[in-house]
């Protein structure tokens, strides 16, 4: 893709991120930070490509660490976010499921 197209993508994505968060209630700040932390785990695909193209031992070693860390970011971010969000229930939902705890 050309530089100017990339710049447009950058600009539009920046506004998108801002708009998504702008109206978030404080009660969701921690899970949302955790959720956005998960989303930048997409660095995994970049690390995979970097390791996939590595030829020297040094490149392979750095690439391996990169994939390892990226997988940790993605999976760990998902697990803790899901654990937190799973617990948010309204009074109505609680009565239906019979009290939970």
């Amino acid at each position: 893709m050309t530089g100017i197209v990339a710049l447009y993508i950058f600009m539009l994505a920046a506004f998108t991120g801002y708009e998504i968060i702008a109206k978030v209630p404080v009660i969701l700040h921690t899970p949302l930070m955790s959720g956005s932390n998960f989303v930048h785990g997409i660095v995994l695909v970049g690390a995979m490509v970097a390791l996939g193209g590595a030829t020297t031992t040094l490149e392979k070693a750095i690439g391996f660490v990169g994939v390892l860390l990226a997988a940790g970011n993605a999976v760990g971010g998902y697990v803790v976010t899901e654990r937190m969000l799973e617990m948010f229930k309204s009074s109505g939902a609680r009565k239906k499921t019979g009290g939970g705890h």
Binding site: M1, F10, A14, G17, Y18, H40, V43
Partner: peptide, 28 residues
Amino acid sequence: AVAFEGFVLDNAAMIIAGTVVGSAGTLL
């Protein structure tokens, strides 16, 4: 950082996801 490396690798998914997190995270 993910968005910048996305530019380097010509990877649109990394650019978009990284930038969205970058701006959302700054606001947060």
